[in-house]
């Protein structure tokens, strides 16, 4: 009973069982140590979790319909991969520029910066072709436009927008379900891993020499927890009589959406006509 042990006087008799080393101050001063790679991984996980949870960076008034964003991305990727005609590439560039200027200034700069740095990486890989005589400027321009289209999509929409777009494009429910579960699991897994790293950090009081062993222990434990969580998730879905049908919030289609979708359709028709002739 708690009342038997609840007053301070009662502890005087029972604290005799406490070991001497616990009664005295530790007076521990660790040797010179560096932050381990294990603890540095926290930043990456936090960024990934933020991305999975992130809402769209575009304000509600300026945001297009999720389907418009997805269709626009697919059309841009399709045309840029398919065509080798300079003026078609420029036309796609103009459509993308029109999409970009509707975004807030900060986001616009972020997208351009990211696209530029990624293009630089691609260009480095592409350098040997310059010496082999197969270098093509159009390829790099297309690559830049593909990067802009992809990063614009990733920055303007959230994971939930993507799921809504899939649903409205009549993608089979089981595929959406798999994707949705995957994303949710990824988020829970990330959260769990982050908390585990925090817990390890709190108990890292010296030079924990075997980081590889520690990683394997953490990953093993995480795996066991995820298996259990997966089972619980399916049981919970069954218990709630989940039929595989998704409910989603209805988004209104604006005039801007129609404009962008018309431009996309026209671009595809133009490419097909040019290809036929």
């Amino acid at each position: 009973m708690v009342s038997d042990h609840s007053s301070h006087n009662d502890y005087e008799s029972t604290t005799d069982s406490m070991p001497q080393w616990l009664i005295h101050d530790e007076n521990y001063h660790p040797n010179s140590v560096k932050n381990s790679g294990l603890l540095k991984s926290e930043g990456i996980i936090v960024k990934l979790l933020d991305r999975l949870q992130a809402e769209s960076s575009v304000s509600k008034n300026h945001r297009l319909h999720p389907v418009t964003y997805l269709v626009n991305l697919i059309v841009a990727l399709f045309i840029l991969s398919y065509t080798s005609l300079v003026y078609v590439v420029w036309a796609v560039g103009i459509i993308e520029a029109a999409m970009l200027i509707t975004l807030p200034g900060e986001l616009l700069i972020k997208i351009l910066k990211r696209s530029f740095w990624l293009l630089l990486l691609d260009a480095l890989v592409y350098i040997p072709s310059f010496f082999l005589g197969t270098f093509n400027w159009l390829f790099l321009i297309k690559m830049f436009l593909i990067l802009i289209a992809s990063i614009t999509y990733a920055s303007s929409t959230s994971v939930f927008d993507f799921i809504i777009a899939l649903k409205q494009l009549h993608v089979p429910n089981f595929m959406i379900f798999q994707f949705d579960i995957f994303v949710k699991h990824l988020h829970v897994l990330g959260m769990q891993l982050l908390q585990m790293l925090h817990a390890v950090e709190c108990r890292t009081v010296g030079d924990s020499r075997s980081h590889r062993k520690l990683w394997s222990l953490i990953v093993g434990n995480l795996y066991l927890q995820m298996v259990e969580l997966g089972k619980e998730l399916f049981d919970a879905l069954e218990a709630r009589a989940f039929t595989g049908k998704y409910a989603y919030m209805v988004h209104k289609i604006k005039s801007t959406d129609i404009l962008v979708l018309c431009a996309d359709v026209l671009a595809i028709i133009a490419v097909i006509i040019i290809q036929i002739h």
Binding site: E26, Y28, H29, P30, N31, S32, V33, K34, N35, E201, C202, R203, T204, V205, G206
Partner: peptide
């Protein structure tokens, strides 16, 4: 890093 470990030893 060194103080951090000392802190974590002192604050459980």
């Amino acid at each position: 890093p060194q103080l951090k470990r000392e802190y974590h030893q002192q604050v459980g």
